[in-house]
Amino acid sequence: MKRLLLGLAAFALVLALPLPAFAGGGRQPDDLRELSHKLRMYIGSAVDVTALAEEADYRQVLNREFTHITAENAMKWESVEPQRGVYTWEGADAIVRNAQRNRQKVRGHTLVWHNQLPTWLTEGVADGSIDAKELRRILRDHIMTEAGRYRGKIRAWDVVNEVVDDEGNMRESIWLTHLGPGYIADAFRWAHQADPHAKLYINDYNLEWNTAKIDTTLAIVKDLKAKRVPIHGIGFQGHLGIQYDYPADFPAVMSRFTDLGLEAAITEADVRMVMPATPEKLATQADYYQRMLATCAANDRCVEFTVWGYTDRHSWVPGWFDGEGAANIMDENLAPKPAYNALLSVRRT
């Protein structure tokens, strides 16, 4: 009991810590939407489309707090075309309509990825019934159809997602194997043709610190720009864990990309921990979130900070990392955690 009381007292202390005044000594923002306006950047969240439809409290907080939203799964290929030529746009449409009603911009996620592909596509490639020529046509049709459907309604698309592996090699996928590395440039050109006004991004995880992945991604970007391929942005996913050191070189890494003329976004931020959560772990989590947002705020070309789900009620982390969780800025009851308050303290420098 004594240990429990001490833990509760420490947690209360974390919540009660004074936060720094906002720029110019002004009042700290009351919520993330106000912070978004103060920092002059979009602050967003990934959206669970089922929760959006069925949970009024989830929907209310999402629309109160955020100026930008991303479809967590509803725009992925297996979701929008589960059977060849049979499209299911309901989830993606619902997210776009919700954004329009609530003065939010939308990030489209994602047009080309090696995961969450429909089985008709992967099985057709595997058994040879879809050859390379047809695969290229299928990819073009997918990009043109989806990006074209939401033409003028998407601020930015993650055109290609996770195309570099952890060793810094081009990721082995059906796209690389059957189409060669030129599929990346093709995807950007087709996306631009379908929606000339959308910002087009390359998006990846561990770009905050993995030197091999950073160098290869930089080389891809430089090659695309040299070929006048329409690429506009770099997406740093921002999936961190407090059991690992914070990537202290992240500001310099971001600058290496923005110095090439790209805009930047932190697209999928969360900070997981080994459970159970403790006041000390939550304080470290808050520090990591604050430093990520501060990195974006300090770079004039960083335009968006999006969390990969804002509540622990709906999080991908426990299903992927055994024994880990509590990765988001609000708890299961949608109550703000220390990380939420830490974000409100960030100012543009």
Rank of each mutant, 00 (worst) to 15 (best):
D204C: 02
E172G: 12
A219N: 12
W175P: 07
Y58V: 01
W190F: 04
M254N: 04
V274I: 10
I231T: 11
T177C: 07
V307S: 05
T278E: 04
A194H: 10
D270S: 06
A191I: 10
V160K: 07
N210K: 09
E167C: 02
Y310M: 12
Q237H: 08
E263V: 15
Y42V: 02
H197I: 09
F257P: 05
V346Q: 05
E332V: 14
T284P: 11
S173D: 09
D166N: 15
M170G: 00
A252E: 15
P82G: 08
V271M: 08
N206H: 04
R137P: 03
D31F: 10
G323M: 05
P29L: 03
L15Q: 03
W157M: 08
L62S: 03
I220K: 09
A265P: 00
G241R: 15
D270H: 10
E134F: 12
H314G: 07
V106T: 04
A248F: 07
R140H: 10
F257T: 05
N169V: 00
V160H: 05
A194G: 06
Y340I: 02
A9H: 06
A56K: 14
T67F: 09
G241E: 15
G261N: 02
T211S: 15
A99W: 01
A248G: 06
E332T: 15
Y288G: 05
T119M: 13
A92E: 11
I130P: 09
W77I: 02
H192F: 06
T122A: 00
F236W: 01
F22D: 03
T119Y: 08
L52Q: 04
L176M: 08
A23L: 02
R149M: 01
R136K: 15
G128R: 15
P18E: 01
A21G: 13
I130R: 06
G182I: 01
P196G: 10
D270V: 00
R347K: 13
G148F: 14
A71P: 14
G44K: 00
A92L: 09
T110Q: 05
A71Y: 01
V271D: 03
N299I: 07
S255D: 14
A46G: 01
Y289K: 07
H314D: 13
T267F: 07
G238V: 00
H197M: 11
W89H: 14
E81L: 12
L135R: 02
A294T: 14
D287W: 10
T311C: 06
P230C: 02
F305V: 02
L32I: 11
D48R: 10
L52H: 02
G241P: 04
E332F: 11
D249G: 04
V106P: 03
N169P: 06
G25P: 00
